[in-house]
Amino acid sequence: MTQTSTLARGGAGTSAPTRRGRTRGSGLSPKIVPYVLLLPGLLVIAVLLLYPMYQMVEMSFHKVGLRQIKAINPAPADFVGLDNYNSVLGSPLFWSSLRNTVVFAAVTVALTLVLGTLVGLLLNRLGRKMSTFVVVGIMAAWATPPTAQAVVWKWLFDSDSGVVNWLLNLLPDGLSRLLFGRSDWTGQPWFNDTYTLYFVLIVAVVWASFPFIAVSVLAGLKSIPSELYEAAKMDGSGAVTTFRRITFPLLKPVFSVLVVLSIIWDFKVFTQLYLLAGGTTNRDAFNLSLWSYAEAFGGSAPKLGLGAAIAVVLTVILLLITLVYVRQIVKTEDDIR
């Protein structure tokens, strides 16, 4: 950690450029500058997202159907207090969906980050041509439209025509029996059972999201001055030590962002699950997103109040999980400065 403070983290406070800025007569008080810089982004978010978010929270305390949101002759929405929340938290599906969501997110986030980081490090070490070659390959995975992704994975794991069962059958019988306790994989169904379904989902989501981590890590690595590595080399530190003492501390802020965002995204996985599970017919396999969809938006009479309540609950859970961590990130950085 010592390096962090002495190295490029730099940023010794905020004073220098601002003070100079004032002397240079840009006309802006340094107190205002950050707000001016934030303004465009904040404006977009406030108008387009914050106000609708406020409305969403308000909806969650009302009974809202389409009649209530009509542009022409809307019906008034009844205030129902915490009814929507009671029916969310009181449903047995809430707990099974929450379990599926949390376990899935934990496994997927871990796998994605490890694989993504390793690939990012690998890309940094490869020659230029090879690196471009691999990076284009992983970009293709990332760029594949979600619907196509889910369907292709569904085909690959198809019980009859899937590549996976075909490959598993290619394994020598002895080895296959040793590893999985069986040798015949013909017609093995993957999408009936919640466990195997989620196994496929994890593979599919990790596959689609590790490129993002890899590219971000690569970008982080590219911004580390190479002198540091040369210095480490001269000190005779090995690859692991170098990673632990230079690469990781320098990438830590990037990692933190990636962890938090990965948790958020994997909590909300929808399209892939919806397609792999074949819609909403298998409720054992629900995660929170799919459940809220089935509960609130699936029917032709959407229960928007209930849907909003689920969304609020989901957001609060995510906040609780990430808040401690996020505060820590923001705080440590402040301390370093």
Partner: peptide, 19 residues
């Protein structure tokens, strides 16, 4: 019933029972 669609395929009541 306006809610039939929900029972029919969104909540898939009978599909789950059959399974």
């Amino acid at each position: 019933s306006p809610n039939w669609a929900e029972a029919n395929d969104t909540k898939a009541v009978l599909q789950n029972a059959a399974r």
